[in-house]
């Protein structure tokens, strides 16, 4: 379970910011004053640190952080 969560947290920033780009490459809908592509990139500026934080805590709880 923890292993799965770790894999999700590690791969999410790559998938969101590289792999899915062709699908988010659009103007509509405009959210918070940002066209969709820019909103999406902005969203992941904020979400990526949470992924890192999650990984940090997982590693800490496993004691694998040296």
């Amino acid at each position: 379970m923890k292993k799965l969560l770790l894999i999700v947290l590690i791969s999410a920033p790559f998938i969101a910011q590289l792999v899915v780009l062709p699908f988010v490459n659009r103007i509509d809908p405009i959210i918070f004053g940002l066209p969709f592509l820019q909103f999406w990139l902005f969203l992941w500026i904020v979400l990526t640190p949470f992924c890192t934080l999650g990984i940090y805590h997982l590693q800490k709880s496993e004691g694998s952080l040296d």
């Binding site: 920033p13 790559f14 910011q17 590289l18 780009l21 592509l37 820019q38 990139l41 992941w44 500026i45 990526t48 992924c51 890192t52 990984i55 940090y56």
Partner: peptide, 19 residues
């Protein structure tokens, strides 16, 4: 235009990978 935004995933991922 938006080609300039490549700098965003680039540096966000750079820090993420650096972890």
């Amino acid at each position: 235009g938006s080609l300039a935004f490549f700098a965003i995933p680039y540096s966000v991922l750079a820090y993420f990978i650096s972890y």
